[in-house]
Nucleic acid binder design. Structure first.
Lengths: 204, 204
DNA sequence: ACCTGAACACCGTTCAAGT
DNA sequence: ACCTGAACACCGTTCAAGT
């Protein structure tokens, strides 16, 4: 066989990632396999290993795209807010909305774990950190007198909290699943945490 | 072959669950397989299917044990606290400690997802709800004037938040992983959320 | 009655061989 | 140079057949 250069390596990569996204959107990470991807793009399994190190590597790249889309959506949400508090609320809502609109893909980002020895590559860790920085940026005006370390703590606490609510809701471990009901929890978390923060700072 | 009743069905179940726990503790859910369990208990794969519906069913039972152990640990933590706030803090710390001490088993509880059509059995959902009720029980004195629905919202928000911090930390998605550093986040979440709650109630 | 072992339909990954 | 296809070592699940 060996069809000759119908597609460049870059094209095959692209096709494989798109096919993987389709399969995950339909059947989740559990439904994904190298053989299915290969079949969908009209190549043999072996070809995938010319273009990705292994399946973990491929999944990592799908997840990177998911994080990019999520980041864009959260950044967008910042156009319709004015105060730090309402901006963090908007970001929380954008996060929840993305997760409920793309549950399988969003879920895969957190479900997937690398094998014991493997390190998350720097370009992936960067994408995660950019999300936290977006939260930090909003909170800084509220915490001007605070150390960088404290601002980091506050951002992480809020964002992990929002993530926890979202995560348990989307995977059906809460008895809640529509976006509106989830917003009630994330709003409550952000509003009360920030209100508590304010009284603590005043009392200092 | 066909060894005759060396063990009762109950005993085989027990042996299989214990073996599965061992394997998960060592290699996580990804390292678990029916064939490995069978080998470790000296039976053939087929035998497992005489005693469990399938591997998902077996995992569900391992997870149930993990939740039981977690519940016991959290309940224990309530002996060394006096106020609602310090009790919730103690529970949060107990949760984080359990997760960092048994990362692989704790992780499997949330990593594992049933196939599309499958419903989480009631006896499993019950165990999850008992955890939330333990939090609710502590918070009720703080929220006496509130509706049951509101108390439910507050408990879920706090507990999901604690879970989110724990989850991202234990799976290495934060740059934090020792229990002490995680406690700083969960304490911050609980203290500030409750403080914010208090000012909101006063303002009503 | 209790358990086996072989079979079936799947996996991820590699790599000699074909064009 | 590019890609194949067969091989290897694994899966979960079933079920006729053995004792």
């Amino acid at each position: 066989m060996a069809r000759r250069s119908e597609h460049s390596k870059e094209q095959i990569r692209e096709m494989a990632l798109a096919a993987a996204e389709d399969i995950v959107e339909a059947d989740g990470l559990a439904g994904l396999s190298a053989r299915k991807i290969a079949k969908q793009i009209g190549y043999t399994v072996g070809t995938l290993y010319l273009v990705f190190r292994n399946l973990d590597d491929l999944v990592l790249h799908v997840n990177a795209r998911t994080l990019d889309a999520l980041f864009a959506k959260i950044q967008d949400s910042l156009h319709k807010c004015r105060t730090p508090r309402t901006c963090v609320l908007a970001m929380g809502r954008a996060y929840v909305d993305f997760a409920t609109e793309n549950p399988k893909r969003w879920n895969m980002v957190f479900e997937h774990q690398l094998a014991e020895g493997e390190e998350v590559p720097y370009w992936f860790a960067d994408k995660v950190n950019m999300m936290f920085q977006l939260v930090q940026l909003q909170l800084t005006p509220l915490l001007e007198s605070q150390t960088e370390k404290k601002i980091d703590l506050v951002s992480k606490t809020i964002w992990c909290g929002v993530h926890g609510i979202c995560s348990l809701a989307v995977t059906g471990k809460l008895d809640i699943s529509d976006a509106e009901s989830i917003h009630v929890l994330t709003d409550s978390l952000i509003n009360n945490y920030l209100a508590g923060m304010a009284t603590t700072l005043k009392g200092e």
